[in-house]
Amino acid sequence: MRLNKSNELLTSFSKAGIILRPSSPELKPIYENIKSIFEKYNIEVFLENNSAKMINKKGLQLDELCEKIDFLVSVGGDGTLLSVVRKSYNYKKPVLGINLGTLGFLTDISMNEIENFLKNFTNKNYRIDSRMLIEGTLNLNSFVAFNDIVITRKSISSMIKIDAKIDDKHFNSYYGDGIIISTPTGSTAYNLSVGGPILYPLTEAFLVTPVAPHSLTQRPLVMPADFEIEFTITDSQGAVVIADGQDIYELEENDSIKIKIAKQNAKMIHRCERNYFDVLSEKLRWGN
C-alpha cells in the first residue's frame, strides 16, 4: 500500500533551527551564508548547541531549539539528516536537507539552490513528504531508525545465527553475516548494496534482507507495515545492532530485539518538482 503525499504545509515558517554536520568547523562561512539568505526572507535562524560550539557561536540545546522553531534544517549529507531525524523524532518538526555531501538521496537542496527554494517556500510552493520510520525495542528500551536497523556479528571471523518470529510465530532462522531491516527510504542504502530491492519511499512496508546468507534460499522479504518481527540471537558470541549506521547497541546470546513501524513518520520538506525516479536515475546512473 502506498502512503499519500501529505497536503500539509507549515502554518508558520518564520523560525528555523540549523544543525550542522559534526566535526566540520570549516562549515562556519557556509553557515553564515545560509543564515544571511534565510534572514533575507525574514526567517530567523537558531543554531543547535553542538553545532554552535563547533564554529564558536552561541546555540540552543536540542530540546530548547525544537520548542522554539517551526522547522529544522540539516546542513551536510544524508548521514547528517539521518541523525537529525532520529534526534528530533519526539518533537515532530519537519526537516529540510541542504546537501553538502556527494550522494544526496535525502538532502536535495544544494547551496546554489537555497535562495530559489526559499522564494518558493515563502510563497507556499513546496511539499512535505511523510516518511516511515522503524522502531527497535531491546531490554525495554526503544529507538527509531530512518534508514535501517542492522543486526550483525561481533566478530569478523564467524557467522551469526538469528531466529526470527512474526507476531510471535517462528518463520525463519538466519545464518550468515547478519540481517538488514530497512524502511522504504533506506532501501537505497545498505539494503541496495547487498542486492535488496528498491521500494518507493512513500510505500507502507519494510524490508528484511539477509547479508551474505549461508544458504542461497534466504532471500529479501517485503513485509506489511502492521507486522512486528522479533529477532533472537542464538549465537554464543552475541551480536551488534546498528541504527542508521550510527547508533550501536549490543545483544548477548538469547537476547531479542523487536522491530515494528514507528508510531509517527518523519516529515521531509522538498521542492514540489522533486521526482523520486529522477533522483534514482541520476544517483544510480540508470540508462548510462
Rank of each mutant, 00 (worst) to 15 (best):
Q246D: 05
L27H: 06
F231N: 02
G101F: 08
N139P: 10
G59I: 06
A225C: 07
K28D: 14
G287R: 02
K5Y: 13
R153P: 10
L96T: 07
L72D: 01
Q237H: 13
K169S: 14
T122R: 12
F227N: 14
L20Y: 06
N254E: 09
D70N: 15
Y276M: 11
P22V: 02
M1P: 08
P22M: 02
V241Q: 09
K169G: 00
T203A: 12
I151F: 05
W286R: 01
T107V: 10
K68I: 14
A52K: 09
P94I: 10
L47H: 02
L199V: 11
D177H: 12
E250H: 12
L140P: 07
G238S: 13
Y276K: 11
K260E: 05
E113P: 07
C272K: 15
D148S: 01
E252D: 13
Y190G: 01
E135F: 04
Q237G: 07
K53V: 03
D255N: 15
I160E: 06
I55G: 14
I180M: 04
K15M: 14
F171G: 01
Y276H: 12
S6Y: 13
K119A: 02
V95C: 05
Q61H: 15
K283F: 03
L81M: 08
T203G: 00
D70M: 11
D244W: 05
L251V: 09
N42T: 08
I128Y: 07
I55W: 04
R274Q: 10
F105K: 12
L10S: 05
S36E: 07
N139L: 09
T217S: 13
V84C: 01
I109S: 11
F206M: 05
M111K: 07
I109M: 06
A212G: 05
Y276C: 12
R274S: 12
F13L: 13
S157E: 10
L138V: 08
Q264A: 09
I198V: 15
Q264D: 13
K161C: 09
H214C: 11
S142P: 11
R2L: 14
M111N: 06
F227A: 01
Y89I: 14
D226E: 14
H170E: 10
A243E: 02
L138F: 13
Y91G: 13
T183P: 00
N56T: 08
F46E: 06
I134L: 10
L199P: 00
K93H: 03
D226C: 01
K68M: 08
L72Y: 01
I166K: 15
F231S: 01
T188V: 00
N116I: 03
S236F: 00
A239M: 10
M223V: 12
P197C: 06
V73A: 06
N50L: 12
S130Q: 08
K40F: 00
M223Q: 11
S157A: 15
L60N: 11
R86A: 09
S74T: 04
I30L: 07
V84S: 00
Y249M: 12
L216Q: 00
S236L: 03
N4R: 13
S187Y: 15
F13H: 07
A262G: 11
I34L: 14
K267F: 14
